[in-house]
């Protein structure tokens, strides 16, 4: 049993950072929400829709950015985005894909296979893949890992823009600085349980670090 008694309610438009030590179950929460893992018990509801029963409708609302890009190495960014766009039923998928490639600053590499891309470039295309269907909910699993400053800024801009447009964002991260820059609420998970839920706290790295250390020290 990885998670024990997780009871979490998130309002539309919230940006939530999930913090916790390695092995706490943060990514598992995200994988269950994204439909990658089925929970052995309990339920996930999105706008009243049950993830198990209405998985098609729920998954249409979710954009998932994992540690791995989900991209096909031998395909170009355009081909990758067109494939995933079609799976999500995006209209004018080619136009939308080109627009996103442009937005992530890789229009010069539109027709190059992604195997020649650096981690940062790959992550930019992965961000485009995650938002190609303009999801209402975004799930990010350690999205800042291995990114250069430019790519971090681009990712944070996407998160903040999506937040301003009313999207709900859940982000698993170890990077407190990025969490503070983008999130309003901070959930700390330890040993599969939510041990703290920081809402309306001062968005200050010292405050968050202090609260975090209080919970996870003496692990």
């Amino acid at each position: 049993m990885i998670l024990r008694g997780i009871n979490l309610s998130i309002k539309k438009g919230e940006t939530v950072a999930i913090l916790g030590p390695n092995g706490a179950g943060k990514s598992t929460v995200l994988k269950i929400l994204g439909g990658l893992i089925k929970a052995s018990s309990g339920e996930v509801k999105v706008n009243g829709l049950d993830l198990k029963k209405d998985s098609y409708d729920v998954k249409r609302k979710i954009g998932f950015l994992a540690h791995n890009s989900f991209l096909y190495d031998h395909l170009t960014p355009l081909e990758n985005l067109k494939f995933f766009g079609k799976l999500y039923g995006v209209e004018n998928v080619e136009e939308r894909a080109k627009q996103l490639i442009d937005e992530v600053g890789l229009s010069f590499f539109t027709h190059d296979p992604v195997r020649s891309f650096s981690r940062g470039m790959m992550q930019r295309i992965a961000i485009a893949r995650a938002i190609i269907h303009q999801p209402e909910i975004l799930l990010f699993d350690e999205p800042h890992t291995g990114l250069d400053q430019q790519a971090i800024k681009l990712l944070n801009d996407v998160i903040l823009r999506m937040r301003d447009e009313g999207s709900t964002i859940l982000m698993v991260t170890h990077d407190f600085q990025q969490a503070i820059e983008t999130c309003d609420r901070f959930i700390i998970i330890k040993n599969g349980k939510i041990v703290d839920d920081l809402q309306n706290v001062e968005r200050n790295i010292d405050t968050i670090t202090e609260k975090y250390m209080e919970q996870v020290s003496g692990l």
Binding site: G34, G35, L36, S55, Y56, D57, K59, R60, I62, F64, A66, N68, S69, F70, L71, Y72, D73, F84, L87, Y88, G89, R129
Partner: peptide
């Protein structure tokens, strides 16, 4: 399996 591509399909609204 290279970049967990299969997961990309699983998280999409694909049966």
């Amino acid at each position: 399996t290279k970049n967990d591509n299969l997961y990309g399909m699983i998280v999409s609204p694909t049966d």
